[in-house]
């Protein structure tokens, strides 16, 4: 029963991600069709990649007839942040996470899944992650399908406004944490400062790469200025909440 409860909790926590993904992947679907891809290709692209910035860049390369090396390098740079996120998540996994579970859950490490699961209080169980990733993926793939099929069915006033949802979710994750821990607040300010600097003063650095640099600079600053206290309790005895 515990497993089912974890799964349901994950699915519930994944629901806002699913809604947010619908609007973004709708745009991905549109983009893929404009690039001359078929509906099936657009859907399979979303199902196998599950990444907004990476897919958007990849579709651009496909449309321009770029090389496979360029495709691989672009994905590597834009998606490198997932390596950091995976590393961070690997520290809060429940003991029931073996290699097969890790191989499965790896598939679904996205910005939003990472954001929500790293805000989760307690250890992460595989079933919780399965539930969240399943619901989120359904939104991502379903939105791509709708976008590819329906074209511009929704008025632009609606799709434009929906574009802010994912960022609204990010804000809902970082602000309460910043309120609780002033050190987190400082790190967020540093990250935003660097991000603004990169965006406006160094626009030639691609956004995926800029995120990696800004996040590392801010996190290193945080680790140097405000190191976390030594572990007060043995993590091995800490049980997962769900």
């Amino acid at each position: 029963m515990n497993r089912i409860r974890s799964f349901k909790r994950g699915a519930a926590d994944g629901f806002p991600i699913c809604l947010g993904y619908l609007s973004v992947s709708f745009g991905i679907g549109l983009l893929a069709m404009k690039a001359g891809m078929t509906v099936v290709q657009a859907v399979i692209l979303s199902l196998t990649n599950l990444t907004s910035a990476g897919q958007a860049a990849g579709i651009g390369i496909i449309a321009a007839g770029g090389t496979l090396l360029e495709t691989a390098l672009t994905q590597f740079v834009i998606n490198l942040r997932y390596a950091l996120m995976g590393l961070s998540l690997s520290q809060k996994l429940d003991k029931s996470f073996g290699t097969p579970q890790r191989l499965l859950v790896s598939y679904g490490i996205t910005d939003e899944v990472f954001g929500v699961s790293s805000a989760f209080e307690g250890k992460l169980r595989p079933e919780y992650m399965y539930g969240m990733i399943l619901v989120a993926t359904a939104g991502w793939v379903g939105g791509t399908l709708l976008g590819a099929l329906a074209g511009e069915a929704l008025p632009a006033s609606v799709t434009n406004a929906l574009g802010i949802m994912l960022y609204g979710m990010f804000i809902a994750i970082i602000i309460p944490a910043a309120k609780k821990d002033h050190k987190v607040f400082c790190v967020i300010l540093i990250a935003v400062g660097f991000s603004l600097l990169f965006h406006y003063a160094m626009p030639f650095i691609t956004s995926g790469f800029a995120v990696i640099i800004c996040a590392l600079l801010a996190a290193v600053a945080g680790a140097v200025l405000f190191p976390v206290p030594d572990e007060e309790k043995d993590p091995e005895t800490e049980e997962g909440v769900l």
């Binding site: 942040r81 950091l84 996120m85 590393l87 961070s88 520290q91 910005d111 990472f114 954001g115 790293s118 805000a119 434009n160 406004a161 574009g163 802010i164 994912l166 960022y167 990010f170 804000i171 994750i173 970082i174 944490a177 910043a178 050190k183 987190v184 790190v187 967020i188 540093i190 990250a191 935003v192 660097f194 991000s195 603004l196 965006h199 406006y200 956004s207 800029a210 995120v211 800004c214 996040a215 590392l216 801010a218 996190a219 290193v220 945080g222 680790a223 140097v224 405000f226 190191p227 976390v228 030594d230 572990e231």
Partner: peptide, 27 residues
């Protein structure tokens, strides 16, 4: 301790850097 601190701050740093200034162009 340094690396644990780094991992503690990375999620917030990543999300903050992804949100700003992109959110201003999201609509």
């Amino acid at each position: 301790r340094f690396f644990r601190s780094l991992l503690y701050y990375i999620p917030y740093a990543v999300l903050a850097a992804m949100t700003f200034p992109s959110i201003f162009y999201s609509t």
